[in-house]
């Protein structure tokens, strides 16, 4: 396999998995918040905290990809 093809495939894999990782990050944050809410009986508070963390985690993926994409 040529070196250029390998590099292109690597980038392809990285950017193709971006979308699903954003969506899943948000859901993981939300789920974590809901679970902790049930555990500590603080109904809506931790859900929002978890949701915010999940959204931030998802968007940090996008920002990181954008920084990486500047090289092209």
């Amino acid at each position: 396999m040529k070196k250029e093809t390998g590099k292109n495939l690597r980038e392809l894999g990285y950017f193709a998995s971006l979308g699903i990782s954003v969506a899943l990050s948000i859901f993981i944050g939300l789920g974590l918040g809901l679970w902790l809410d049930k555990k500590f009986d603080t109904d809506p508070v931790l859900m929002f905290v978890g949701l915010a963390l999940g959204i931030v985690a998802g968007f940090s993926n996008i920002i990181r990809a954008g920084r990486k994409g500047k090289n092209y």
């Binding site: 998995s17 990782s21 990050s25 993981i28 963390l53 985690a57 940090s60």
Partner: peptide, 18 residues
């Protein structure tokens, strides 16, 4: 720390569900 932990959990789930 929580953000990175969430991002790393998302890796497992994205591999799984894809």
């Amino acid at each position: 720390l929580p953000i990175e932990l969430i991002a790393h959990t998302a890796r497992v789930l994205s591999l799984t569900f894809r």
